[in-house]
Write a protein that binds this DNA or RNA. Structure first.
Lengths: 169, 169
DNA sequence: CAGTTTATGTCAGCCTTGTTGACATTCCAA
DNA sequence: TTGGAATGTCAACAAGGCTGACATAAACTG
């Protein structure tokens, strides 16, 4: 990335903040996100699921036994929207919903073995692309990548993200 | 980002390629993309438009006089889908569609003054967030960010992205 | 205990934005 | 002149967002 390294190592150099650079960053996000979702999308299509199912599987796997409400906060959708997805996942035997032990109004969500299998397939496809990108860019670039992404999140979301990270680091 | 810098500067250190690190990267992409789209989304809602309109405005502004076909390739949607968006933008007087001079089957797309105004408002909101993130992370991180994003794109897309960059660098 | 709040689920209906398929128009090029 | 390319349009459909309304059970509170 020729002109990227031009702005790197600058310090007082603010070329990386020009509108042109920022617009390029915006386009890079757009195109990269497409690549980021492309591989799981192909797998999901075979099973008749969409990205919404992937997100649910991902975060249920990530925080075993999470409640519906917690998932709503993480995903930032309405309960009706999540419920539609969750219902099909439960019906299809990918997710198990257990009545909460402490608070019986709550439902604790878990992946079944079948759900875990699909989650791993989806995740592996996505991780494979990340792995290739990380390897191509190198550890220092990856650190910068994560720094910028984290700075781009909404404050509240960053807190959730950080918690999630800390809990399983 | 404490543990990010742990893996940075490693070289032979491959900690940044562990599944856990990759999963964190995946989540960072997910959350960051939400932040990335949040500000323009709010503006679009006021005008009764969606992200699809934003994308069209962005790329029409980016490559003045682009054809519909070219836009289809960049956006990666069907012409019917794009056409619906384009039609409303033209009806609302944000986009002008001129019959091609060389090839009169083609339509060359331009922003009107009104379209340019909205595009700048959307873009400025998005750039403001990028600017803040870039400033917080610093030029070296930004270079890494761009490297990883570029490596994450599909090959064909990366070619388009690179062309677009070179043409207006 | 009665009343309120909380967590969840569900029904109905709407919107945006993606998809396919069919078909018309225009016009370049062989 | 005919074939194919570029574009546009119509119809129908699906996923996955949304809101509003309502039901239930459980927990909390005075």
């Amino acid at each position: 990335m020729a002109e990227g390294s031009t702005s790197a190592m600058g310090g007082e150099n603010l070329l990386f903040l020009t509108d042109e650079q920022l617009r390029k960053g915006i386009e890079a996000m757009f195109f990269a996100y497409r690549g980021f979702t492309a591989d799981p999308d192909r797998i999901l299509e075979v099973h008749g699921y969409g990205r919404a199912h992937h997100r649910a599987l991902h975060f249920i796997n990530r925080t075993h036994g999470t409640t519906v409400n917690n998932l709503l906060n993480i995903l930032g959708v309405t309960k009706q929207s999540l419920n539609r997805v969750l219902r099909t996942l439960i019906e299809d035997g990918l997710v198990e919903s257990r009545v909460g032990r402490k608070d019986r109004r709550e439902r604790n969500l878990f992946l079944t073995e079948k759900g875990d299998t699909l989650e791993r397939a989806l995740s592996e496809a996505q991780r494979e692309r990340m792995r290739a990108a990380y390897r191509a860019a190198g550890p220092q670039a990856v650190a910068g990548f994560r720094q910028v992404l984290e700075a781009m999140m909404d404050d509240e979301i960053r807190r959730q993200y950080t918690n999630m990270r800390d809990r399983r680091a």
